[in-house]
Design a protein around this nucleic acid. Sequence first.
DNA 1: TGTACATCAGTGAACGCGCGTTCACTGATGTAC
DNA 2: TGTACATCAGTGAACGCGCGTTCACTGATGTAC
Lengths: 234, 234
Amino acid sequence: MLSLCQTVGMGPKPGVRAAHRARMEREILAVGERHLARDGAAALSLRAIARELGVASSAVYRYVESRDELLTRLIIAAYDALGDAVDAALAGVEDPRERFAVIGRTLRAWARAHPEQFALVYGSPVPGYAAPAERTNEAGTRLTRHLLDALQRMPHVPGLDVARLDVRPDTYGEPADLPADLPLPALTLGLAAWSMVMGSVTAEVFEQFGPQTVMDWEAHFEAVLVAALALVSG
Amino acid sequence: MLSLCQTVGMGPKPGVRAAHRARMEREILAVGERHLARDGAAALSLRAIARELGVASSAVYRYVESRDELLTRLIIAAYDALGDAVDAALAGVEDPRERFAVIGRTLRAWARAHPEQFALVYGSPVPGYAAPAERTNEAGTRLTRHLLDALQRMPHVPGLDVARLDVRPDTYGEPADLPADLPLPALTLGLAAWSMVMGSVTAEVFEQFGPQTVMDWEAHFEAVLVAALALVSG
DNA sequence: TGTACATCAGTGAACGCGCGTTCACTGATGTAC
DNA sequence: TGTACATCAGTGAACGCGCGTTCACTGATGTAC
């Protein structure tokens, strides 16, 4: 891989060191992800990671500024893993209603496969740690952008009399990614529909409904998607 | 209070000790709640509680079996605080649709006032700790019982063509509290509507929508309640 | 009412653990001439 | 191509911290006669 880069001449030649450094950074992140998945964010420990890598605990500080900085990287990695999954799942899907459903299904599948990562980004915040928005924002909004795009492009056929939604324009702000031409009721119902999807995934992954309530989550979730879409788009 | 009990003759007389013990138990729980609110469940520490009470760390073990047992008590206390709030708010409200809305509003108000308690019971699970269901179940289902009761008694006018909900009866189990005479589509839509409410509260309290998206959460939440009720009950 | 004994609350020291982070250091890898 | 110097990776010891939990103990509160 090193020689390949040199042969093809891409960028400054990496050298043995740069290659090792890149591999080490990847391994730290990978081990961190495994520990996260097993023990949760609060228990994430640089010493434990060093131990597993067979290296002195101080060596990790060559690659990572601090525990909190590693947490930040793990958050970004989680957002990106989910974002990549959504990108892949959306490929070739044109109909915006179907795109909404695909985003929901992908979120659910990813959350089930990586519950601790899901908790890290969409669950309760890690106490004593606040992710630096300027580093996480870009990865964190990938899913949201797809979602708002789909909402904007689907037909707006509210599933209820919108006059009953007593919402004024200044209820919502103007974040960078919010499409300006999304009519107000569609925005309200879109957020509501998405909260329904998120709430369902959360209920399943965190087992909020207690035992013996929902037996077939797959079927229930498909019904939730139908209801969510009916709300926004008829 | 002590003398009162003796005079009225309720049960075995408490004595100075019993009174002190009861007060101590209350204080430990209260300090625990404050620490929980400030630092989160993962940081809950018996030593810190003892320190604040001005007592040797070992003394706490007279009243609490272990850290995990205290966590269990705090979970039950949180469920009960929310349950009490819901009970109080529901008093005098007859219309089941309004009762559904009141439950939602109370949940939101309580979650905003006690975000860490909310996270403890409805957020990501505490790693390395599983609440013993036999102790938490009763308090944990108080809200659910009110909810299912309201769902059962409200008119069932689905907000969409129920034929599109391809849900079979065996999608759901038969937990003790699930009313048997709740028709299948109403159950599906009820859970979906409730997920929407929960998802909205979670989004607000955990700030999942990013900055500058929803400015007036109060107004947005009222719209969510309207949408939720429209889904189940027209 | 008074005394002997049992129960309980709280102490303080200790065990053993893991953590984040720093620091002076050795040895290997790169770079400039 | 060879040499002198700068950079980097990794070591191991240390600092200071907080934690849960146990244990033998003192002194106060209750109970039975």
